[in-house]
Simulated assay, not measured.
Amino acid sequence: MGSLDGKVAFITGVARGQGRSHAVRLAEEGAAIIGIDICADIASNGYPMASRAELDETVALVEAAGGKMLATVADVRDFAALRSALDSGVEQFGRLDIVCANAGIAAMAFRELTIEEDLQMWTDVVDVNLVGSFHTAKAAIPHLIAGERGGSIVFTSSTAGLKGFGGMQGGGLGYAASKHGIVGLMRTLSNALAPHSIRVNTVHPTAVNTMMAVNPAMTAFLENYPGGGPHLQNPMPVGLLEPGDISSAILYLVSDSAKYVTGVAFPVDAGFCNKL
């Protein structure tokens, strides 16, 4: 028996990286998965987004783990599309218990930007990361309340949601602002939803071995960040965490082992935030 047998989880940004890892891990524990991903590039973002083929691969991995998954191409910035995908999943699986608002981008550049480019980076990052998280919660909360079984929402924030770094460009500022904003969203919803036994938390990874962290634009940004080098290194002897390291924290937060854990900003950061 798995710790999530009979439960249903909604995960955004599920086609690869942390989202895929979360889907497979929760499926291994018995959860059915409703997942969405944009499967299209965002022009201001400095690295390619996931593809439909990668989304299909996530479905195959979930099924290989013994789970079931309904996957839909949808952009978290499009509330109607997101809600439609979620509603279809709840109709198919009959319930909703877990929400992982994971979709996010980090639009970094190490070059001179036009003001239009700078503003567009800010807008896209905030819209995907923060507005997308709000959309995810807004669509999911009615299902969680209607189920009368409680539930768990976990927002993916970042160490940049607890500490002030990201540079001066719109992408980096938007990333830090959006990840901080997610914490405010979490804390407010954790109070509002507590009477329904719906728990709300954030997880704050340090750098994770995914496309967001290892693409050339991010590498150039980090190499040239003021005060970089040791300043941006984890105290524990690890450069990058693996997606599964974050999935382990997600599994704890959504499980009955954390049934009274709510309103918590949960770092999985090898000591990064404690150092700064």
Rank of each mutant, 00 (worst) to 15 (best):
M1D: 13
D5P: 00
T12M: 10
G30S: 08
A31G: 08
A32F: 01
G35T: 09
D41F: 02
N45Q: 14
D56A: 13
E57I: 00
E63L: 05
A64D: 12
V73C: 12
D75E: 14
D78F: 12
A80G: 13
A81T: 00
A85M: 01
A85K: 04
L86C: 06
L86D: 00
Q92Y: 10
G94R: 04
R95E: 02
L96W: 08
D97W: 08
A103Q: 03
M108S: 14
T123H: 12
T123R: 14
V126A: 11
V126W: 02
N129A: 11
V131G: 04
H135Q: 02
A140T: 13
L144S: 05
A146I: 06
E148H: 11
G151S: 05
G151H: 02
S152W: 01
L162R: 15
F165P: 05
G171W: 12
K179D: 05
T202R: 11
H204T: 10
H204F: 06
P205N: 08
V208H: 06
M212F: 04
A213I: 12
A213K: 13
A213F: 12
A220C: 12
L222V: 02
P226H: 14
G228M: 05
P230K: 14
H231W: 08
P235N: 07
V238A: 11
L240I: 02
L253R: 10
V254H: 01
S257H: 06
A258W: 04
F272N: 02
C273D: 14
C273E: 15
